[in-house]
Design a protein around this nucleic acid. Structure first.
Length: 482
DNA sequence: AAAAAAC
């Protein structure tokens, strides 16, 4: 058979196929159902190691195919090794996969279900914000694989809907995110319920000191798997930042969406309220936009994601609930309405675009006060981001925004009073005043600069602000039994 | 400083 030779990278390994791993015919059939033939790098590395029963510490980001990297060998292991015959339960939980967000749990569960579809293995997903009852029925009927967010899983355990005493394999997905989100105590409680003898897989986007400590405390002699850091993916993403007046950010985002005629874009906001307001602003401007964040009901969150994926919605305005994990593929563009406080999150956010070989744009708007955030980001990604200029954008002069919250509008001083936005106290736009008695609202007083524009403490290391949290974490980590 | 996650 004479094939036209194709260009191959000089030292690329011979092409591996899923069929080479000794996976069962049922699993291979599920893969071919989906048209998968060749594993991604992390799958090629992880599958054999997991099949050997080894613990794994994997550094991999979303979009690398890590879900299949752990779920395929797990399914294989569960098929190959029968459930312990002593088990009183007919279908004890044998594999437990924990994720930091509900949407990620759903997504992982969909994958697992698809890969296991031709096997007798049952799986289900449990997470908060939804009725307990349907989950309870499924758990009580018995499942081998559970995908869960920690809080709701503990709830089910307490109600004796599920027992974790037979778990053979534990997966912690997005472990760094779990730590960020303060899941450690829950994780600790869950881990204490599992058999001491088990296989552990931990995946994390970063290899921070905290993650290494966590790995040391509950992985046994793990194999470390690391695939290319996402900094490399940034090559395909064209990044531009626009410095604008803080109060003009919403209009600028609207402008960018119109100017570029964007039909599928995620806009990231640092706050839930900011996301809601921006979505409403865009809606009122005639752009089909929906907000997704943790204050929305689970039904709303799922509906938003669903209709965005279907293309019914053009703009998804999201908090970092959507920064990681969500498999919204190949977006042409991502916009940061706020620069993220964690530079790492910038990488995750822009990772929503420029995937699978496609190119993408990551646009960010920021204002004076965010210079430090931008500097942190550029330091992390080791490149300077292009400063863009807005063409054809006409700022509306200090126009009171129509969509201000009613209570805010009521407090707003009569008439524009011709005060430029830069004169306003910094706190105004960042949230409502504390609802306490004897309020002495700023708008009743003549304006004075807020406590002298904070002197720039050049000597302060950027990590100082998160040190207390780190110490607390270290204390907790020390408390995990080996 | 804010986000997420159990009721």
């Amino acid at each position: 058979m004479s094939e036209t030779p194709i260009t191959v990278e000089p030292d690329s390994a011979p092409t591996v196929r899923f069929a080479d791993f000794g996976l069962s015919p049922e699993i291979l059939r599920a893969l071919s159902d989906q048209g998968y033939v060749h594993p991604t790098p992390i799958q090629a590395e992880a599958i054999p190691v997991v099949l050997q029963g080894r613990d794994v510490m994997g550094a991999a980001q979303t979009g690398t195919g890590k879900t299949a990297g752990f779920s395929l060998p797990i399914i294989q292991l569960l098929l190959a090794h029968a459930s312990p015959s002593m088990s009183p339960a007919r279908h004890p939980v044998r594999a437990l996969i924990l994720t930091p967000t509900r949407e990620l749990a759903v997504q992982v569960a969909e994958n697992v279900k698809a890969y296991a579809r031709h096997t007798p293995l049952r799986s289900t997903v449990v997470f908060g914000g939804m009725d307990m009852k349907p989950q309870t029925v499924i758990l009580r009927n018995g499942v081998e694989i559970v995908i869960a967010t920690p809080g709701r899983l503990l709830d089910h355990v307490e109600q004796k809907n599920v027992s974790l005493g037979q778990v053979q394999i534990l997966v912690m997905d997005e472990a760094d995110r779990m730590l960020d989100m303060g899941f450690l105590p829950d994780l600790q409680r869950i881990i204490n319920m599992l058999p001491k003898q088990r296989q552990n897989l931990m995946f994390s986007a970063t290899f921070s000191t905290e993650i290494k400590k966590l790995a040391n405390s509950f992985l046994t002699n793990p194999v470390t798997i690391e695939v290319a850091r996402s900094n490399a993916t940034a090559d395909k993403v064209t990044q531009v930042v626009y410095k604008v007046d803080e109060d003009a950010k919403r209009d600028v985002v609207e402008h960018l969406i119109r100017q570029r005629n964007l039909k599928q874009v995620i806009v990231f906001s640092n706050t839930k309220i900011g996301a809601s307001r921006l979505a409403r602003h865009l809606e009122q401007a005639g752009i089909n936009a929906v907000a997704i964040h943790g204050d929305k009901t689970q039904q709303e969150r799922m509906a938003a994601l669903d209709s965005f994926k279907k293309g019914e919605i053009e703009v998804l305005v999201a908090t970092d609930v959507a920064a990681r994990g969500l498999d919204i593929t190949d977006l042409p563009c991502v916009i940061n309405f706020d620069l993220p406080y964690n530079a790492e999150d910038y990488v995750h956010r822009i990772g929503r675009t420029g995937r699978a070989g496609a190119s993408g744009d990551a646009l960010s708007v920021y204002s004076d006060k965010d210079e430090r955030l931008l500097a942190d980001i550029e330091k992390l990604i080791k490149q300077t981001v292009t400063r863009g200029t807005l063409e054809g954008f006409a700022p509306r002069s200090a126009r009171p925004s129509r969509d201000a919250a009613p209570e805010r509008r009521a407090r707003r001083e009569p008439e524009g009073a011709g005060r430029s936005s830069s004169e306003r106290p910094a706190g105004r736009s960042s949230g409502p005043m504390p609802r306490r008695e004897k309020v002495d609202p700023w708008f009743l007083k003549p304006y004075e600069p807020a406590a002298a524009p904070e002197p720039v403490k050049a000597a302060t290391p950027s990590s100082s602000s998160i040190k207390p949290a780190k110490q607390k974490l270290a204390a907790l980590l020390g408390g995990i039994p080996k």
